[in-house]
C-alpha cells in the first residue's frame, strides 16, 4: 500500500503553475528521487506536502488520510519531516536546543530530559554531538545542513523530504551525507530526496520522479529515466549538450 499519495496536485502562484496536476505514490521504505531543472516545482511539492503551502487543487493522503490543507505542525506531528533547501536554524539557540524543539513539540517527548536525550541521539547520529553547545548561527554550512537533518530526525518521521541537503558541500562531505541518508532509510524511514547531483540520485534511489514546469514528465528506475527522451530533452539534454560543447571547446 502507498504511504504517501499525491493525486492531481496543483499549485499556482498568480498565473504560474508551479505544480501542475502531479500524481505520485510513495511506498514504505522507498528512497525516491525527485529531480528536475531549476524552477521545476520540486520545493513547491515539498511545501505543499508539509503544509507550508496549500495545494490549489488535488488531494494528498498520508497513510490513507487526507492531509491537504492541514497546518504544518499537524502534518509534522503525524510523521512527515523535511529539511529546507535554504537552512532554517533557530540562529540564537545552541545546536542542542535547535534539535530539542522538534523533539519536544513534534515528537512530544514527555519532558525536557527525554527531549534532551533524544536530541543528543539525533546529534550523535549525524555526527554533530561535539557541537551540541555551539550557537547554531556559528556553524559552517556543512554543519548547518547536518543540523537540519538532526532536527528532522528528532521528529521521529515516517517520511523524510530532503530538499538539496548536499548543495554546497564538498565531495568528502557529500560522501558522509550519503552514508547518513542510507542509514536513515535502513532504520525504516521513507525518504524523498531532491537532488541536482546525478551521481547521488543514481546510486541512492530505487525510483525517480521527474518534474518539468510543474508537471511530472517521467517516472521509473534511474536507468529508465536517464534513457527517457523527454527527460534528456528537458533536463539532462540541455546540460549534457552544454557540457559536451564546453569540453569540445576546451579541446580545440
Amino acid at each position: 500500500m502507498s504511504l504517501l499519495t499525491l493525486e492531481n496536485v496543483s499549485r499556482s502562484f498568480g498565473g504560474l503553475n508551479a505544480l501542475d496536476a502531479v500524481d505520485m505514490q510513495v511506498s514504505p521504505g522507498e528512497i525516491v528521487g525527485l529531480i528536475g531543472p531549476n524552477g521545476a516545482g520540486k520545493t513547491t511539492l515539498v511545501n505543499v506536502v508539509t503544509g507550508a503551502l496549500r495545494p490549489s487543487a488535488g488531494d494528498i493522503r498520508f497513510e490513507g488520510r487526507s492531509i491537504a490543507g492541514k497546518k504544518p505542525h499537524q502534518i509534522g506531528r503525524m510523521g512527515i519531516a523535511r529539511t529546507y533547501q535554504v537552512v532554517q536554524p533557530f540562529p540564537e539557540m545552541t545546536v542542542l536546543e535547535n534539535v530539542m524543539a522538534p523533539a519536544t513539540f513534534a515528537a512530544r517527548a514527555e519532558d525536557m530530559r527525554t527531549a534532551r536525550l533524544k536530541s543528543m541521539e539525533a546529534l550523535e547520529f549525524v555526527g554533530l554531538a561535539g557541537s551540541a553547545g555551539t550557537i547554531a548561527a556559528e556553524l559552517t554550512l556543512a554543519g548547518r545542513k547536518r543540523l537540519e537533518l538532526a532536527k528532522s530526525l528528532a521528529m521521529n518521521p515516517r517520511v523524510l523530504l530532503l530538499d538539496e541537503v548536499n548543495a554546497g558541500l564538498n565531495t568528502a562531505e557529500i560522501d558522509g551525507a550519503l552514508t547518513l541518508i542510507r542509514r536513515i532509510a535502513d532504520n525504516g524511514v521513507t525518504v524523498i530526496i531532491i537532488e541536482h547531483l546525478m551521481k547521488v540520485v543514481m546510486t541512492l534511489c530505487s525510483r525517480l520522479v521527474v518534474l518539468h514546469h510543474g508537471a511530472k514528465i517521467a517516472e521509473g528506475t534511474p536507468d529508465e529515466v536517464s534513457r527517457d527522451p523527454h527527460v534528456i530533452e528537458a533536463y539532462l539534454g540541455t546540460r549534457y549538450s552544454r557540457n559536451l560543447g564546453a569540453r569540445e571547446a576546451a579541446h580545440d
Partner: peptide, 14 residues
C-alpha cells in the same frame, strides 16, 4: 521569535 516558519515545521502550534 527566531523563525516562525521553521517553528511550525518542527511541530509548534504557533
Amino acid at each position: 521569535r527566531q523563525n516562525e516558519d521553521a517553528s511550525s515545521m518542527v511541530g509548534i502550534d504557533t
